[in-house]
């Protein structure tokens, strides 16, 4: 430890941490606070405490349908993005195919491209060729924007693993597919799990694509919250949001139990 840090720097350090807490955690606290209000309006601090808005959403078919749609979609996206992303990461890592760098760049593009452009493009293309949007449209859209996260986390783990492992597997009698299944995939598992977690969350709270592609059939929870806020704001939106936060926290705890959050995040 360096001793004798000037007071001014200490002050800035404290202020910095305080600002992070204020802007990062603050909104979550506000939303959670509002969700427990006994009143009829979205106000903070809440007026009294009750669980009436939680009761309202768990008995509301609109919210339940939206939650079910979101959950279904998130699970589908998790599966497709994880399979495609992990496979792509392994291909990029091996650097054997010509043009891997280019293909890898294409797959990572959704990270930097404005989602709104992608959403608009997908909507126009889909409507022109296949008509009305459906859960399938949204599934494809969410998969595309979730894949880069799976690729990134899987590649990060693969980059730290011994590059001779696969070759060792081959010289010990494993064919190309067996080597991937028994050697490469187990190495990449932590990264794949982290990627799957990201994919689920991205799909579950994605709003731009869902908004552009929305149809009665595919009203997701974020869109339901947004619609409610737009037309008849009441604290039910805070209750729904708080449950979404809770779901994320539970998933983080599960991931931590299974893989260790430090390793997955690193």
């Amino acid at each position: 430890m360096v001793k004798g840090i000037p007071v001014s720097i200490k002050f800035f350090a404290v202020a910095y941490v305080a600002a992070i807490i204020l802007f990062l955690i603050g909104p979550l606290v506000v939303v959670a606070g509002v969700s427990f209000t006994a009143g009829d309006y979205v106000t903070f601090p809440p007026q009294g405490t009750s669980l009436r808005w939680y009761e309202a959403i768990v008995t509301s078919p609109v919210y339940l349908d939206a939650a079910w749609t979101s959950l279904k979609l998130a699970v589908l996206v998790t599966i497709s993005a994880t399979v495609i992303g992990a496979a792509m990461a392994i291909v990029i890592h091996r650097q054997r195919l010509p043009g891997t760098t280019f293909i890898g760049g294409m797959f990572l593009a959704p990270l930097v491209l404005p989602t709104i452009v992608f959403a608009l493009g997908l909507l126009i293309a889909w409507s022109s060729y296949w008509g009305a949007t459906s859960l399938l449209t949204l599934w494809i859209g969410h998969t595309v924007i979730a894949i880069p996260y799976v690729i990134r986390t899987t590649l990060a783990v693969l980059a730290t693993s011994d590059k001779f492992l696969e070759e060792a597997g081959r010289t010990l009698g494993a064919g190309p597919w067996k080597a991937i299944f028994y050697v490469v995939l187990p190495q990449a598992m932590q990264g794949i799990a982290a990627g799957a977690f990201f994919a689920f969350n991205i799909s579950f709270d994605e709003a731009i694509l869902s908004l552009f592609l929305r149809s009665p059939e595919i009203m997701t929870l974020p869109i339901q919250i947004y619609t409610q806020l737009e037309f008849s704001p009441d604290p039910s939106i805070a209750a729904a949001s708080t449950l979404m936060i809770l779901l994320t926290v539970i998933m983080i705890l599960i991931i931590d139990r299974l893989f260790g959050i430090q390793r997955v995040a690193g």
């Binding site: 070759e167 010289t171 010990l172 009698g173 190309p176």
Partner: peptide, 29 residues
Amino acid sequence: PPEQRDIAMVFQSYALFPHLTVLENVLFP
């Protein structure tokens, strides 16, 4: 391909499979 040759190789980095135990590593081939 390597898996069809009657060989075994020891690598400079040893290339042990980290997800397997010592016994499972030796069982692998």
